[in-house]
Nucleic acid binder design. Structure first.
Length: 577
RNA sequence: GCGUCCGUAGCUCAAUUGGACAGAGCAUCUGACUUCGGAUCAGAGGGUUGCAGGUUCAAAUCCUGCCGGACGCGCCA
């Protein structure tokens, strides 16, 4: 892609002028404002500063050595020392033509593909999935998709909460309070009820608490009956999770729950103790972080005083397993920001445990979803909103909208469109805000047909589909490959659109580098906007000859980028809506 | 109490992590059209980026202090 080419050339020029410079800081990116040029670099200003040199003079020296005559009509030093690259029209046309020939879609596969484990969603067994799981699920899925699109080897893993003290209560409930009819109807709701019944009982009757404790110990010791109950609960839960994942189009390569790591906990703890990383404190095994100002006040327990493992222990064992099984370059943990401290501790312990490991560990954290009142998003009655209900409502609201706009379509088709539009809107609303900020959930805003929403983008895509349907109905043959040589944008709106298409790759890379899908959302929104401008200003089917062919080609390329981009967000594009 | 994150237009959010004049949508007002799908497009008003200092060519972004909010702080996950 052009920004890569320019970046390489710029790095070569910088290396000639400043042989000791760290070239990884020499980057080229699309200009934030087209009036400055097509691409820009601000690298020379910081390089000059570090060396106490005049930035503009240094920039001029580098431009002198820069060999980009084949790509740029002009490279200028601007303002305090920016380098602005102005593309030759032929260079832009060549990129468009290559895309039309099917050689790329404005992005290039990673030169050094990484193996990336993405840990996300992670619901708890015997509990319904609720709004609290939606951000992790959608964000994690999107990051996995973008990384895959860029050619990385991605391993998605659903780290189910399938072990822990709650199973003592659940087994007591299962044995004494189970309603088989209810279980057949809605297994997860029934298991949730069983937990609540027993939990309430334990608060009043210590004998029940003791019974739960005994059942838990039996389960942990491998008692066949309890083990069978646990497996049954797991199976029922997974069936329900799978239904939701199928609706959402989310796929996991592995579902290795916490229980999977039970056999590995002891060894992990023993090693940490033997190596002096953990030591005994108040009967527990604890890791202290005396040399870390932030963690100093927050030691981490890796073995409770009763001898049982906890969350941190399991996560450490999980980390070790992933490392030896998949040899990842990178592991992403997609969870909410309340777990920041936990992951700081986890990563710090791991670095001491495996100082040689070169894996990148990233806690990709996100903020909360709030209701319209700015408080945690709940039902009117104050209950947690179940994910299934949320998806139903999204589809139902979208169905009413589609019916209103397009009443003539058969109901089955309206339902199918409503599914794509409703779920797309829900996902997009979640991916659009900077993931680290809390956002306010709003049905009206997410389903709005104007503004930065999924339906707006889907609509832009359907307009393009419609254009080509019309073309096909007329019986005219269309071949993008054959049109390639004619792709040389002339009208201003064509150029703006073409220019934006070229930035798709840079955007995908930024998403993958910073784990921020909102960059892609905004890119696609701008693309749809530029397309609308173009479509308004430039007739396509009404034209003839070269102009018509060129514009049809631009339309098709835009359609492909829109569809590919939306797909990378996990959003489908309907044929019509 | 300590720590983390945050505070941007009336509202909901951006701002590629220190870059050029802080941008969108909604709402408000004004326009365009014999619809290649009007679920469209153009334009206007609206800002001392919580407050006060500091760092530098450059600060919403970094540092210090205050004000306000959310979250987290050894045996839950």
């Amino acid at each position: 892609m052009l920004h890569h080419l320019l970046e390489t050339r710029l790095q070569e020029a910088v290396a000639t002028v400043l042989p000791d410079a760290d070239l990884s800081t020499v980057r080229v990116r699309p200009c934030p404002d087209p009036k400055f040029g097509d691409y820009q670099s601000n690298a020379l200003m910081s390089l000059a500063k570090a060396r106490g040199r005049n930035p503009r003079a240094l920039a001029a020296t580098v431009v002198d050595k820069l060999q980009v005559g084949d790509l740029c009509a002009l490279v200028e030093v601007a303002g305090p020392g920016f380098l602005n690259f102005h593309l030759r029209p032929e260079a832009r046309a060549a990129a468009l033509q290559a895309a039309a020939r099917g050689e790329h879609l404005f992005f290039r596969p990673a030169i050094r593909p990484r193996t990336v484990v993405v840990d996300f969603s992670s619901p708890n067994v015997a509990k319904p999935m609720h709004v609290g799981h939606i951000r992790s699920t959608i964000l994690g899925d999107c990051l996995a998709r973008v990384l895959r699109l860029l050619g990385h080897r991605v391993i998605t893993d659903n780290h189910l909460g399938d072990w822990g003290t709650q199973f003592g209560k659940l087994i007591v409930g299962w044995k004494h309070h189970r309603d088989d009819a209810a279980l057949a109807r809605d297994p997860v709701a029934e298991m949730e009820r069983l937990y609540r019944v027993v939990h309430r009982a334990t608060e009043q009757d210590p004998a029940v608490l003791e019974a739960a404790r005994r059942e838990l110990v039996k389960l942990q010791q491998g008692d066949p009956e309890n083990r069978a109950i646990w497996e049954r609960m797991l199976e029922l839960s997974r069936a329900q999770f799978d239904t939701l994942y199928r609706r959402l189009g989310v796929r996991f390569d592995h579902t290795l729950g916490e229980s999977f790591y039970n056999p590995r906990l002891r060894a992990a703890v023993d090693e940490l103790v033997a190596r002096g990383i953990a030591r005994q404190s108040d009967g527990a095994q604890v890791v202290f972080f005396d040399d870390d100002p932030e963690l100093k006040a927050h030691p981490a327990i890796i073995l409770k005083s009763d001898g049982a493992a906890n969350y941190t222990t399991t996560d450490l064992a999980t980390l070790a397993y992933r490392l030896e099984t998949w040899q990842p370059d990178e592991i992403l943990y997609v969870t909410d920001g309340r777990q920041l401290l936990h992951f700081k501790q986890l990563f710090a312990i791991f670095r001491r445990w495996h100082p040689e490991a070169r894996v990148t560990l990233a806690h990709v954290w996100f903020g909360s979803i709030l209701g319209e009142d700015g408080k945690p998003f709940k039902t009117r009655a104050g209950d947690t909103i179940k994910l299934a209900d949320l998806l139903d409502e999204a589809e139902e609201r979208a169905f009413r909208l589609v019916t209103e706009k397009n009443p003539a379509l058969p109901e089955a088709e309206r339902r199918a469109i409503a599914r794509q539009v409703g779920l797309g809107a829900l996902k997009y609303q979640d991916l659009l805000p900077n993931r680290q900020s809390d956002y306010i959930f709003s049905w009206d805003k997410m389903l709005a047909l104007q503004g930065n929403t999924a339906p707006y983008l889907q609509y832009a895509a359907t307009r393009i589909r419609s254009l080509f349907r019309k073309l096909a109905e007329s019986g005219e043959a269309w071949d993008l490959r054959a049109a390639a040589p004619l792709l040389l944008p002339e009208a201003p709106a064509e150029r703006v659109l073409a220019r934006h298409l070229l930035n798709f790759g840079h955007t995908l890379e930024a998403v993958a580098a910073e784990y921020r899908p909102n960059y892609l959302c905004n890119y696609l929104y701008e693309l749809a906007g530029h397309f609308s401008d173009f479509y308004e200003a430039c007739p396509v089917l009404k034209e003839t000859g070269t102009i018509r062919t060129r514009r049809l080609a631009l339309c098709e390329l835009t359609g492909r980028v829109l569809q590919t981009g939306l797909h990378a967000l996990g959003i489908e594009t309907p044929e019509r809506m």
